[in-house]
Amino acid sequence: MSKVMVIRPRAVVIGAGALLAMTAVAVLTLGTGDFPIAPADVVKTLAGQGNAAQTFIINELRLPRVVTAILVGMALAAGGAVFQSITRNPLGSPDILGITSGAGAAALAVVILGGSSTALSLAAITGGIGTALLIQLIGGRRGLQGYRFILIGVGMTAILNGIMGWLLTKGVQMENARALLWLAGSFDGRGWEEALPLLGVLIVTIPILAVVCGPGLRMLEMGDDVAAGLGVPVKRLRNGALLVASLVVACAAAAAGPVNFVALIAPNIARRVTRAPGPNLLPSMAIGALLTVAADWLAMHSGYPLPVGVVTGGLGGAYLVWLLISERKAGRI
């Protein structure tokens, strides 16, 4: 038996378990709505054996929303895993560093100017990547580790939130309502036109992050010097991986609005439960998908129509407080 496990069985079991749980919740979600459908019938319909009404309701009305939720969860978690691995800090996630806020501010500007939904998506992507480049420019000269970089990101988030507030005072009431709904993060009314581009982005970027960048990212976790000594092109890898990860996160934000904290929590949970070193990209994605689908289900069952971003924000905020307390106890802050 080999002493070196390239892939830990524990990580595979946890990833598969999360996907299974995610599927179960997705089936429940697909059965929820004005026309409740029993889970068994949902599965039958998905297999192509439902009646015409069920097929229409599930495949046409509800499936796109759930698929968007799954893809958004995966994308945010993948981006978060790469960010946290590069910053070597559980707080170094795109929502804390301002990437999500950058996407939000740019998208908000488009909403208030009355742009199309394509323009909104493009603006969100540009805003997210622009913010990533900016924080690298300001804070990245002496490496991206440590609280210095995190604090620059926090400052950036504050500035961008200020800009968003200002934009909202400039908007007309109608557009503001649309803008606020987008800002809260929601899967309401999301269809294939949101899901398919995001799926395309994930199909291209995830292999890049996992196969091309993955081994080098694992080396980077031991410190820049060790990684460079092992032949990792440190700067090129770091900048490239951050850019791709920012693109993934910004595309997720373009599809559903800023669904808060998934990028922060999913990789943290993945690392804790798999107990494996490295970015834990695939387990993080499975857990991210489970989180968003479950949050969406919770949002639907809250008895009040909550946007999913409010649920993940509430759960994520609580997790962040717990994380800060436990990091404090471990003497890392």
């Binding site: 694992r218 410190g223 070193p277």
Partner: peptide
């Protein structure tokens, strides 16, 4: 190269 500053990632085994 064995640099002065190196961090063992959390949860990594010797092998």
């Amino acid at each position: 190269l064995l640099p002065q500053s190196s961090t063992a990632p959390d949860g990594i085994t010797v092998a």
